[in-house]
């Protein structure tokens, strides 16, 4: 019974995520759109959680909802469009957005259909946080270090860009 509820619950989450995604792109108000995007990200975190990937779900909330969305909203507030309830978008913009979305959808569908989804053998395929850490430090240590250097460079670059010139 509980498993049945859980299985049906995934569909509810999926529908919610899709609805929020449409809302985030269709709402005329920038701020509402950004909040709908936060709802999408939360729903995706919920999907991860229901699939047993707790760590991924928490990182998703921490990084995307907690940090990235806050930055997005900060940027929206700095655009000075706060009082206007409607942000006008031109007809060409809409057409371009529609076309690029359609192309992206087709590409993703192609990847999804052509991938052979291997079912993990054994009942419990979920890697623990410890396994993730060991994997990151042993098997994937090179990409990990490259990412570290990249982020460090970004940090220094941001500091350099934000530094005030001494007069």
């Amino acid at each position: 019974m509980l498993e049945l509820i859980a299985v049906k619950g995934i569909y509810i989450l999926m529908v919610f995520a899709a609805a929020a995604a449409f809302a985030s792109s269709l709402l005329p108000n920038l701020f509402h759109g950004a909040l709908a995007l936060a709802a999408v990200l939360l729903a995706v975190a919920g999907l991860y959680l229901s699939l047993g990937a707790e760590f991924l779900a928490m990182v998703q909330i921490l990084v995307y909802v907690g940090a990235v969305m806050t930055l997005v909203i900060y940027a929206v507030m700095l655009t000075g469009r706060l009082e206007e309830t409607v942000t006008p978008s031109g007809r060409i913009q809409r057409a371009a957005a529609g076309v690029s979305c359609a192309i992206f959808f087709v590409l993703v569908c192609g990847v999804l259909l052509s991938t052979n989804w291997p079912a993990a053998p054994g009942g419990n395929p979920l890697p623990s946080v410890k396994d993730l850490g060991i994997d990151l430090m042993k098997r994937h240590v090179f990409p990990f270090e490259v990412l570290g250097i990249l982020l460090f460079a970004v940090l220094i670059g941001a500091l350099a860009a934000a530094r005030r010139e001494k007069s």
Partner: peptide, 10 residues
């Protein structure tokens, strides 16, 4: 804990 408290900002 950290993830949930970070959503308060929003």
């Amino acid at each position: 804990f950290v993830a949930l408290s970070s959503t308060t900002t929003l």
